[in-house]
Nucleic acid binder design. Structure first.
Length: 676
DNA sequence: CTTAGGG
DNA sequence: CCCTAAG
């Protein structure tokens, strides 16, 4: 059965086989046909992805600088596609590898420069500038593969930007982060505290967290030939020379395919080639990868001693990621906010922290029992992404973003590696672990690992350890992930067809990722799929693993509706009524590909329910009462109206206010409402 | 493919 | 969000 499925996909077996859940198979089968179109999809392997969240203006600025602004989405999409096409051949030839390596180096340089500055945002901007100039922008664009390269650079910049932001950690973040490093240190009693997860918030101020993310995007054509499971063959060497040995290999197997197929078949609305391409990408990209988490684990296991080590010195680090899916989003946001503040704090002195136990056996300062960590770089796991060659750069970016978001969304954990070895006992103190020694600090590294590892991921994939370790002997990538939930918020408005907020229309095409033209492309690409690079790989992969994976099909990542989206939905429903979800979708969420009309319908359903229950019973991001009132009004109106229609035949409701008094009122009310 | 509903 | 039945 597995094999058959594979054929249906037409992917030549390069991805992990997908095992349908009985009933669904029939449905999907039809969809899969379309998947054949994706045969040519080329696999991009991105090595370091870093916390990028939104596409902020700065990042997009660099990419768009040479191109006119406000280009119609369509044409832009075409252009981007062309670029991509150009690049593809290169990738196939392994030529890209070199380019990426270069970019990586440059990026690092740029980053270093940036990090020397004190103001995060300024840094990001500077970095971009530096990077661009240093990298000889024109060069990148002019040649095949150049486009990709520049894109990569852009990503680097973004990462840099975000990493900088991370550096300024707000108190909240620190609150959760610091803690135990201080406490546990040198004290046996700390046993009750689990590693870095201590709950003490003592000496927050004294602890300065420096998180710097060093992103090194890399595309390796070689990897394409390998199956996801065979990451071991992944050429780590290329990175290692740059000091980044950690990679995270995320592969989405079945999931992506499923998604893709589904999506493709849907929506007639998106018929343009670009649209189709996007759809495909999306499908492929879909984020189910996370379930594959077990792989991530492997990453951590791998090398801890990457080039970054020198950077890890004293300073404390604290991160705490929450896993609960429900809160993941919020948490991430907090994380960012907090981080961004740290930098501004300027230096906090280690002294301040040192009021603790006196056991000064530490390195330089005997009196300071505290171990300070300075995390210079956090490695991002190796990501394997496969997108159609016709995919646009923008879609690729979106895909990557999506993948990262997915990872983040699932929650992340920090892994501690000492001399390349993962320290698994959370109850051990730093002293006990030997982390208090300066020498060891240099060999200490932190890895972000998807929480999913611990969860379902493992179950689905089978024995993660065997898989991972076996596959990546060379040095496994570690997976530091930076979270960023900002994306939703930022893009939100642009994704909506009819943003409630007038301001949204003022996108600066030049730099803003929110640029409508860009968004059009991006939304579709949201889903990332980690795919094995080559066709051959599949054959190599053990069947058992395949099947396991396929069964793990994940569900889409949860994406709570924002108030803005709710507003748009309410407005659309007020105008169109219930029962016309496709129209609602087209009207208000055409650009929000992650929202299907079914999603909208479901959301409306929940909104109605929410509006009926007491505020205390409501959960999640609070929806303004005003909106809920409108929901009830519209619901009541349309319920009644529908009945009327049924009885008296179809009466197309236009915009006539007379027919919909309650709606009218609601609309008026909404206009006065200020959307955030 | 869309809707409508239950899960 | 997912899954299905139905149109």
């Amino acid at each position: 059965m597995v094999s058959r499925k594979r054929l249906d996909y037409g992917f030549n077996g390069f991805h992990v086989p997908f095992i349908p859940k009985g009933p669904r198979s029939a449905r999907r089968r039809g969809l899969f046909k379309k998947a054949n179109e994706d045969d040519e999809a080329c696999a991009f392997e991105l090595l370091a992805l870093a916390g990028m969240l939104l596409q902020e203006s700065e990042s997009s600025a660099s990419s768009n600088a040479s191109e006119g602004n406000h280009r119609p989405a369509f044409s832009q999409g075409v252009i981007e596609q062309e670029k991509l096409d150009e690049v593809k051949p290169k990738i196939t030839d392994n030529i890209l590898l070199g380019s990426f390596g270069e970019s990586q180096l440059r990026t690092e340089v740029a980053m270093q420069n940036c990090t020397q500055k004190s103001v995060p945002d300024a840094n990001a901007a500077d970095c971009v500038q530096q990077f661009i100039s240093a990298d000889n922008n024109s060069d990148c664009r002019g040649k095949a593969g150049a486009a990709v390269k520049s894109e990569i650079c852009e990503w680097d910049n973004k990462f840099q930007h975000y990493s900088n932001r991370l550096v300024e950690a707000p108190e909240n973040f620190r609150e959760s982060c610091d803690v135990n490093i201080n406490n546990g240190f040198g004290q046996e009693k700390e046993a009750n505290n689990s590693g870095f997860q201590g709950s003490n918030s003592a000496d927050r101020s004294s602890v300065k967290n420096q998180l710097e993310l060093n992103m090194s995007p890399l595309i390796d054509s070689n990897s394409n030939a390998k199956s996801p499971l065979y990451r071991n063959s992944f050429p780590l060497a290329s990175y290692s020379k740059h000091g980044n040995g950690n990679k995270l290999g995320i592969r989405d197997d079945d999931e992506k395919f499923l998604r893709c197929n589904k999506v493709c078949t849907k929506s007639k609305t998106f018929r343009s080639p670009q649209r189709i391409a996007h759809r495909r990408i999306r499908k492929h990209l879909f984020s189910k990868h996370w379930k594959v988490a077990p792989n991530l684990k492997d990453w951590e296991l791998s090398r801890s001693d990457m080039g970054a080590q020198p950077h890890y010195r004293k300073r404390k680090i604290c991160h705490s990621f929450e896993r609960s899916e429900h809160k993941a989003r919020v948490k991430r946001r907090k994380f960012f906010d907090r981080v961004s503040r740290v930098t501004s704090d300027g230096g906090f002195s280690s002294e301040s922290v040192s009021n603790s136990p006196e056991k000064g056996m530490n390195m330089d300062n005997p009196k300071d029992p505290h171990v300070k960590f300075s995390i210079k770089t956090i490695r991002i796991p190796e990501l394997y992404i496969e997108v159609p060659e016709t995919a646009t750069i923008g879609s690729l970016k979106s895909t990557i973003m999506e993948t990262v978001m997915t990872i983040l969304g699932g929650g992340a954990h920090v892994g501690v590696l000492l001399q390349g070895k993962k320290v698994r006992d959370d109850n051990r103190t730093l002293v006990q672990t030997g982390i208090s020694c300066k020498e060891n600090l240099d060999n200490l590294s932190f890895v972000l690992e998807p929480s999913s590892l611990l969860d379902s991921g493992a179950a689905c994939v089978g024995d993660p350890s065997s898989q991972c370790e076996t596959s990546q002997p060379a040095g496994s990538p570690e997976t530091p992930v930076i979270d960023s939930e900002i994306t939703d918020t930022l893009h939100e408005s642009s994704l909506l067809t009819n943003p409630v907020n007038p301001v949204e229309s003022n996108h600066d095409s030049t730099s803003s990722p929110t640029d409508p033209t860009l968004d059009k492309e991006t939304p579709d690409c949201r889903a990332l799929v980690v795919v094995p690079a080559s066709t051959d790989a599949l054959a190599v992969v053990p069947v058992s693993q395949k099947s396991k994976r396929s069964e793990c099909a994940q569900r889409r990542t949860r994406r709570p509706f924002s108030v803005t989206e709710v507003e748009a939905l309410v407005q659309a429903v007020e105008e169109l009524g219930t029962g016309r979800w496709r129209d609602v979708k087209l009207r208000a969420f055409e650009n929000a590909d992650h929202r299907t009309y079914v999603d909208l319908k479901d959301k409306w359903k929940t909104l109605v329910h929410t509006a009926k229950i007491s505020p205390q019973q409501r959960r999640g991001e609070p929806v303004p009462q005003e909106l809920l009132d409108r929901v009830l009004a519209a619901h009541a109106y349309w319920s009644q109206h529908q009945a009327k229609q049924n009885g008296g035949k179809t009466l197309k409701i236009t915009e006539t206010s007379a027919e919909r008094p309650s709606i009218e009122a609601a609309v008026v009310q909404s206009q006065s409402l200020v959307m955030v």
